[in-house]
C-alpha cells in the first residue's frame, strides 16, 4: 500500500518586485521531504514564521498568487497536480484551519459546514459530525462571532470530517485553548488517524505534538533539519540535530533551558547551515559548505555536517 502522502524536495518561494521592476525570489520552504502512512500522525514542528502554514496551503495548491512551488507531491502514489488537488480538496484531502477567522463572518455555521447543500442527507451528516465533537444542533444556527474559541475549533474539525477524508492537514489546531481543551482536540485527531486517515499536524508546540504524533519533522528557517520518530524524543540522546536537542532541553519537564539568539528569516541565509548563528557546536565547515544535504541518520534524517552521536549529551 503506497503512503497517503509523500513529499520530495519541496520548495516554496515568493516572487516579489523590488522597486517595481526587479524580480526577486524569496524562498520560504527549502527541500522539504516527508511521508505519511495511512493511520499515521506526522507532526511538522517549527517556530512561528518558519513557513509551516504555507506547507499546508501548498499541498492543497492554495498558495497566494505570487507563490511558486517546486518538487514533487505524491498522493496515494500518484502526483498531486494542481488539477487533482482541486478535485480532491474538501473531499479526500481536508484542511482544519487555525481559528474562527476561517469561517465566513456573515454565514451561519451550519450553512458553512454543509457548503450550501440543503438536502436532508447533508443536514443529517452535518448534525452527526457536530454531535461527534459534543456540539449540539442549535450551534448550526449561530454565526461564527457567537462561538467560543474551543467551540470554533470543534466546529472546524467537524467541518473536515463530514465527508470521510483520507488525508487531514491541520494547521495549529490548539493555540488559545487551555491544556484540557487542547488535549481533547488532539485526541480527536488521533482518533481520526486510528480510523485510517493520515494526519499532518502543523504546529509550533513540540510538547503537544509529541502526545499524538508518530513521526516528527523539525523545521528551522524554512528547512527540514531533522526527521525523527516520536519515541526518539524520550531522551535527548535519541535526537540528531543540535537544534532539536535545544528544543528538547527547552521543554518544561527537561529543565526549561531557552536557546539564545533568534531564527533567521527564511531565505536570508544563502550558504552554510542556517542554524550556525545559534549553534554551540558550529565549526568553520558549517558556514563555508554551500548546501548541507538532508541525509539518513540512525533511523531518521538530519541536515547537519556533524550530527549528534547517541553517546554525546
Amino acid at each position: 500500500m503506497p503512503p497517503i502522502l509523500e513529499i520530495r524536495d519541496l520548495s516554496i518561494h515568493f516572487v516579489q518586485y523590488e522597486r517595481g521592476f526587479r524580480r526577486r525570489r524569496l524562498p520560504v520552504i527549502r527541500d522539504l521531504s516527508l511521508t505519511i502512512q495511512p493511520g499515521q500522525v506526522v507532526a511538522v514542528v517549527g517556530a512561528s514564521g518558519s513557513g509551516k502554514s504555507l506547507l499546508a496551503h501548498g499541498i492543497l495548491d492554495l498558495l497566494p498568487y505570487n507563490g511558486q512551488m517546486e518538487g514533487s507531491i505524491l498522493y496515494q502514489g500518484e502526483p498531486l497536480s494542481p488539477r487533482r488537488a482541486e478535485q480532491l480538496r474538501g473531499d479526500e484531502i481536508v484542511l482544519i484551519p487555525q481559528g474562527v477567522t476561517y469561517l465566513d463572518p456573515l454565514m451561519k455555521v451550519g450553512d458553512q459546514i454543509r457548503r450550501g447543500r440543503k438536502d436532508p442527507d447533508s443536514r443529517a451528516r452535518c448534525t452527526a459530525a457536530l454531535q461527534r465533537y459534543g456540539v449540539g444542533p442549535e450551534v448550526e444556527a449561530l454565526y461564527p462571532f457567537e462561538l467560543s474559541g474551543g467551540m470554533a475549533r470543534r466546529v472546524l474539525i467537524a467541518s473536515a470530517v463530514v465527508d470521510r477524508p483520507k488525508l487531514i492537514i491541520t494547521d495549529e489546531p490548539t493555540p488559545g485553548l487551555d491544556a484540557k481543551a487542547a488535549g481533547r482536540i488532539l485526541g480527536h485527531l488521533r482518533e481520526l488517524a486510528e480510523e485510517g486517515a493520515g494526519v499532518l499536524l502543523v504546529t509550533h508546540d513540540l510538547e503537544l505534538a509529541l502526545t499524538i504524533a508518530h513521526r516528527v519533522t523539525v523545521f528551522y528557517a524554512g528547512e527540514t533539519i531533522e526527521e525523527a520518530a516520536a519515541q526518539d524524543f524520550s531522551s535527548s540522546a535519541g535526537l540528531r540535530h543540535p537544534f532539536t536537542r535545544a528544543l528538547w532541553r527547552a521543554m518544561p519537564q527537561h529543565g526549561f533551558h531557552p536557546l539564545s539568539g533568534a531564527q533567521p528569516y527564511p531565505g536570508t541565509v544563502d550558504t552554510g547551515c542556517p542554524f550556525a548563528g545559534q549553534c554551540s557546536r558550529c565549526r568553520p565547515d558549517c558556514v563555508q559548505t554551500q548546501r548541507i544535504p538532508l541525509r539518513p541518520w540512525r533511523g531518521g534524517a538530519v541536515r547537519c555536517l556533524f550530527p549528534e552521536e547517541e553517546a554525546s549529551s
Partner: peptide, 27 residues
C-alpha cells in the same frame, strides 16, 4: 478574496465563482 475564510472555502473544494457569490457578495 484574500481572507482566511475565502481560503478555507477553496480548501473545502468550493469554486472561485461560487466563493465570490456565496461569501464575497454579502461581505
Amino acid at each position: 478574496m484574500e481572507s482566511d475564510y475565502a481560503l478555507f472555502a477553496r480548501a473545502r473544494g468550493e469554486r472561485p465563482l461560487a466563493i465570490a457569490v456565496r461569501h464575497g457578495l454579502w461581505n
